[in-house]
């Protein structure tokens, strides 16, 4: 780590005042300190925002849930009300990192975390995202990268929470300068598609205040496949949320992570599913729609069948069926 200053903000106003052009916010620290240690990020100042008032609450509102920016992932995973109301959220939280990471890491930090691309994070490689000339992953080791790859930087979204929150149509409440506004979860990574230097749609010194989920309860599920059983990044993650009217799907939304710089959601797939009977064929056709424009690279073609399987399984899981244990 290069030298930096440290300050603790006690209000959003204070935080913004303390956070200059070359400075960054610090909450759980598990993401940013990794970057600083590798000299990937060299902030002049870290502004501790863990103490901003009201940002450590999980509140059930009249219309849904409000999760404060500094709620830890462990607090989400252990919250009984959320477990009953939105089980997929609990599942996604429980798969974040390790117990220690979950105890430290915050919701906002999970959403705003930076690329885990092994070129971007490497102290001795200057990749496109780091201001270098080329995207090494595109030409070389891209096993863990995006299969939606028609953009400059192919490092995928790795946040579990973003995937389930997108399926739940959540929005992120952000403070920018004097203004406060909402970004839909689905749009939270959009800028990263076009702009290779961006990790998400936040601008420097944008401060996440809270995340709002517009439903009080909903069937939802989160699944991921990793190489290891636990404490490993998802190769593909998938969330589905929706209702079942008998065997018919209602208001179903499917979202995937780790396969694109954005959370992968396809409206056509969601509308295709509307009112359909849940069966293997329907689930597979939805998967086809979602993955239709995938352009896998040399080493990540496996993510296509893997994503397909997770989409099918997530949809069936909404109906309480463990597809992989069913014999066909």
């Amino acid at each position: 780590m290069k030298p930096f200053q440290y300050a603790t903000a006690s209000s959003a106003d204070g935080a913004l005042e303390l956070c200059g052009k070359n400075d960054q916010f610090l909450a759980g620290g598990t993401d940013i300190l990794g970057e600083v240690k590798e000299f990937v990020s060299n902030p002049g100042r870290l502004v501790n925002i863990k103490n901003l008032p009201g940002t450590r609450e999980i509140v059930e509102t009249d219309t849904g849930w409000k999760l404060g920016a500094n709620v830890t992932i462990a607090e989400i995973a252990a919250h009984e009300g959320l477990r009953r109301a939105l089980p997929g959220l609990t599942q996604a939280a429980a798969k974040v990192g390790s117990p220690q990471i979950r105890n430290m890491g915050t919701l906002a930090g999970n959403l705003a975390q930076h690329s885990r691309c092994w070129y971007y994070r490497h102290r001795d490689v200057q990749c496109l995202k780091n201001g270098g000339a080329r995207c090494y992953a595109r030409e070389s080791e891209n096993k863990y990268h995006s299969i939606f790859s028609g953009n400059p930087c192919i490092s995928p979204v790795v946040s579990n929470m973003a995937v389930i929150l997108a399926a739940l149509e959540a929005s992120v409440n952000i403070r920018r300068g004097k203004q406060t506004f909402d970004i839909k979860m689905a749009e939270f990574y959009m800028v990263a598609w076009f702009n290779p230097y961006a990790h998400n749609s936040l601008k420097p010194a944008d401060l996440i205040l809270e995340v709002n989920i517009p439903v009080k309860t909903r069937s939802c599920v989160y699944l991921q496949v990793s190489e290891k059983s636990d404490f490993d990044w998802a190769l593909v993650s998938c969330a589905a949320a929706g209702d079942l009217d008998g065997n018919a799907l209602k208001n179903v939304r499917v979202a995937l992570g780790a396969i694109s710089p954005m959370v992968q959601e396809v409206e056509d797939a969601n509308s295709f599913l509307e009112g359909k009977e849940l069966d293997r064929r329907t689930a597979s056709m939805a998967a086809n729609i979602i993955l239709e424009e995938a352009e896998p690279l040399e080493h990540n073609g496996y993510k296509v069948p893997m994503a397909r399987a997770l989409i099918r399984r997530a949809l069936f899981k909404l109906a309480g069926i463990n597809l992989e244990r069913e014999t066909s």
């Binding site: 030298p3 930096f4 200053q5 440290y6 300050a7 603790t8 903000a9 006690s10 204070g14 005042e17 303390l18 100042r45 103490n51």
Partner: peptide, 16 residues
Amino acid sequence: QIKEVSDEKVHGPEAV
């Protein structure tokens, strides 16, 4: 405690 943690003073980069 509020006073202590609310201290918005900038520390460092030298040792503090």
